[in-house]
């Protein structure tokens, strides 16, 4: 598959590149990969990384080594919504284990897996900076905090509704 940014996406890429001095366009790589991941299927296939390399005039390997280093870049297909549940100390002492077990039970998947309908992926992550509002998870751009089982239920219903409608 080949990938091409549309006009809006290309304008955004140019805005990102323009922040850096002439010849330092590689600095835009992280923001460009966020843009690429958000613009297509939520993950970064090799062809898409190659496309970004060509746009930034760098070698493909320079993109691969960065994409594989940072935990927010997905190198495998993911569901439409990713539940990234924090499991580090402060969340753990506030009950994240129960929340993680409950989500696994509700969605019938294990961490790292995606539901059969392709809607949800469960990912366990390390501290997201919401320790005072624990337990918590990130879904897309949003932090869902002070999680309880009831709250998890309503969040699942909420996202599922956006798909079935």
């Amino acid at each position: 598959m080949t990938y091409t940014f549309n006009e809006t996406q290309m304008a955004e890429l140019n805005r990102l590149v323009a922040r850096y001095p002439e010849g330092k366009q590689k600095s835009a790589l992280l923001p460009a990969l966020h843009l690429a991941q958000d613009s297509f299927d939520g993950w970064l296939p090799t062809e898409l990384m190659d496309y970004i390399a060509s746009l930034l005039k760098i070698e493909p390997i320079e993109v691969y080594e960065v994409a594989s280093f940072y935990s927010m870049f997905n190198l495998k297909p993911v569901g439409k919504f990713i539940f990234e549940v924090c499991q580090t100390g402060p969340c753990m002492i506030s009950g994240s284990d129960d929340i993680i077990a409950y989500i696994q039970e509700k969605l019938a998947i294990k961490p790292g897996e995606t539901t059969k309908d392709g809607v949800f992926t469960l990912k366990l992550v390390e501290c997201l900076g919401a320790c005072g509002y624990a337990p918590m998870m990130q879904v897309g751009k949003i932090f869902r905090e002070h999680l309880t089982k009831e709250k998890v239920d309503s969040i699942i219903t909420e996202y599922r509704a956006t798909v079935t409608n």
Binding site: R19, K26, L29, L30, L33, E65, Y70, S71, M72
Partner: peptide
């Protein structure tokens, strides 16, 4: 500039590397 999920980038020279797209 947004990072992409790496605690180590809070270390100032790692942060600079990341800002350079590495």
């Amino acid at each position: 500039q947004r990072g992409a999920g790496a605690y180590i980038c809070g270390e100032e020279t790692a942060l600079i590397e990341s800002l350079e797209g590495k």
